[in-house]
């Protein structure tokens, strides 16, 4: 019985850890420097916790196996051991809190948008992302670089104005609204996340970041993609019955392709 239980605990522990060790199911690709930093922090955590996990499970199995009923002698009347207790309390504190502090810079890069030394780039591409049940709409400010005002009364999906952009306003005249997102490679992108109805969440696995789109609030995310390709944008906050099919695409293009794409969209708007 003791041996069986011990072996079972060991098998389960090693079995659970094995795919992590050999990377059977690898993390998605990374397309920003920040994503690679997240991965580094993830790997570090994986090492630290993996060792604690295996040690704890192996020790549990060993104790079960070793101290069964049939061994000779009485059970030890031990109430504790202060030295050991202080040791593992200190070790746990140092490791766990240490991990948080090590991850601090990565978190700061992702979210401390206002911090002085992380001022946004001047030439960043600004895109407004608006979630609604169950589609994403992206708005580009057009040639003037300014978003026009929106009005609820003007919203009309059939007329191709899902966001209700005021086309009579000089700023809104050239705003481009598309269901897919395109951005130039190696240039900072700033997303302004909004929602028309309920909570959604903008998640691109390759960026390793996600942020809720909260109605009434504009959230900001900045990243600099460095790999050309097409990536999926999925919704990661329960938003209703179509939650699972709310997705779009993020296309990272060369600067030329991106410029062409913008021109094409603007021409489409003219018609």
């Amino acid at each position: 019985m003791a041996l069986l239980l011990a072996v079972l605990i060991w098998i389960v522990a090693v079995g659970l850890a094995y795919p992590f060790i050999v990377d059977t199911w690898p993390l998605p690709d990374t397309i920003t420097e920040h994503a690679r930093q997240v991965d580094a922090q993830y790997r570090l955590t994986l090492w630290v916790t993996g060792i604690i996990f295996l040690l704890a499970q192996l020790a549990l199995g060993y104790a079960v196996f070793k101290f069964g009923r049939n061994r000779p002698g009485a059970a030890a009347h031990v109430r504790g051991n202060e030295r050991w207790e202080i040791l593992w309390t200190t070790a746990a504190t140092v490791l766990f809190v240490g991990l948080t502090f090590m991850g601090y810079t990565v978190w700061a890069e992702a979210r401390f948008t206002e911090s002085a030394n992380r001022a946004p780039d001047e030439d960043r591409t600004i895109v407004e992302v608006v979630g609604q049940q169950f589609v994403w709409n992206m708005r580009y400010p057009g040639a003037d670089g300014k978003f026009g005002p929106t009005k609820i009364e003007l919203v009309d999906d059939a007329l191709g104005n899902p966001l209700g952009v005021d086309r009579d306003h000089p700023d809104g005249k050239d705003d481009i609204v598309v269901p897919r997102m395109a951005v130039p490679v190696n240039r900072q992108v700033e997303l302004q996340l909004k929602s028309k109805d309920v909570l959604h969440n903008y998640f691109v696995p390759e960026l390793r970041i996600k942020l809720d789109t909260v109605p009434g609030i504009t959230g900001t995310l900045r990243f600099t993609p460095d790999k050309i390709g097409t990536y999926e944008i999925v919704c990661s906050e329960l938003c209703g019955l179509g939650h699972y099919k709310m997705r779009s695409f993020l296309e990272v293009k060369t600067q030329e392709d991106y410029d062409q794409w913008l021109v094409a969209q603007a021409e489409f708007l003219e018609q």
Partner: peptide, 22 residues
């Protein structure tokens, strides 16, 4: 995580040196 770790280690410590009835 710290008190949780303390509990885990103390559970294993409780088993250690015992005469376990399964």
């Amino acid at each position: 995580g710290v008190p949780s770790a303390i509990k885990t280690f103390n559970w294993i410590g409780t088993l250690w040196g015992g005469k376990i009835r399964f």
